[in-house]
């Protein structure tokens, strides 16, 4: 009896809130699509005992994947809690589909290497531009893709590489990539340059190498390329992008192997693709990152 009473009270409160929100003329999506059948929060095997959703991301969190000003410690450079930037926005959209409010989400700093090491994970899912591969999927669960990615190459204006128009034309240059990225694979397997490519531990080291001429071109995913060229390297230029051969490369959420959350995250992503949220978020956060010549 008591329980029923409190439930109806809560319902009344929610209704009042919804009315208030709609009356405000603000978004009414606050109540839309909370929860997916078979994905009750207590069935997801969440890390946090208090029922928060823990999302992992690497620090610093780079644009355009994460946005907002530095605010929440220890995040550097941007703030995943902001909901700004493509991956932050997608993560919150997935959380909302699963019935988590913005306040019920917490972010855990997780270096890329720790996202797939064996043992207990520090997150429910991890989102930092991790590309799916069948090999990798033996170690962790991958969700469906939330972004289909093209590799691309950044050079510097006025340098010979800036006018290259084909993959063949890139072979004679010294190229670099960040370790742990599929960009390195792309250099080795698709471009096959004459001199061995350089591999850097961090984005910063790779950008530094491009700036001081140790490498002629930096291979990164296309949205990152636009950010590198616009902000990190003053005379940077996106030389071109590459069309994948075979299956398209995709970024997926990383989950612990056998996670109960995987199927539910997939259903949340299915909904977000179907209702246009993903397309919309890509338009908001990645719109500038499309127009680069395709190198073949």
């Amino acid at each position: 009896m008591r329980k029923a009473l409190s439930t109806s009270l809560a319902l009344a409160a929610v209704t009042a809130l919804v009315v208030a929100v709609s009356a405000n003329g603000r978004s009414t999506t606050a109540t839309a699509a909370t929860g997916i059948p078979g994905c009750a929060k207590d069935k997801l095997g969440l890390l946090d005992k208090a029922g928060m959703l823990t999302i992992g991301a690497d620090n610093p969190a780079f644009h355009p994947w994460f946005g907002g000003d530095e605010k929440t410690k220890p995040w550097k450079f941007s703030d995943p809690y902001s909901g700004k930037g493509y991956e932050s926005a997608v993560a919150y959209a997935v959380a909302k589909q699963l019935g988590f409010s913005k306040e019920q989400v917490k972010w855990a700093v997780t270096p890329f290497n720790n996202s797939f090491r064996p043992g207990k994970k520090s997150f429910d899912f991890y989102i930092t531009q991790v590309s799916y591969s069948p090999q990798r999927a033996k170690a962790v669960d991958f969700s469906k893709g939330y972004y289909f990615v093209n590799q691309s190459i950044v050079g510097r204006k006025g340098k010979p590489i800036a006018s290259v128009r084909s993959i063949n034309g890139l072979r004679k240059y010294t190229l670099g990539a960040q370790v742990g990225t599929t960009s390195y694979d792309f250099i080795v397997k698709q471009i096959r340059p004459a001199s061995s490519p350089k591999v850097y531990d961090t984005n910063d080291a790779a950008v530094q190498a491009l700036k001081n001429g140790r490498i002629d071109g930096l291979v990164v995913d296309l949205p990152t390329a636009f950010y590198v060229a616009a902000v990190q390297v003053p005379d940077g230029r996106v030389v071109g992008q590459f069309r994948a051969r075979g299956a398209r490369e995709r970024f997926g959420l990383v989950l612990p192997k056998g996670s109960k959350l995987t199927a539910c995250a997939n259903r949340a992503l299915d909904r977000l693709w179907a209702n246009g949220t993903i397309k919309n978020l890509q338009r908001i956060w990645l719109a500038h990152a499309t127009g680069a010549p395709v190198l073949k």
Binding site: A139, V179, G180, T181
Partner: peptide, 16 residues
């Protein structure tokens, strides 16, 4: 790319 870096590359390609 020396031995450790190559190992790192292979590790991140395979998650192993």
């Amino acid at each position: 790319v020396e031995a450790f870096k190559q190992a790192q590359i292979d590790q991140s390609a395979t998650f192993n």
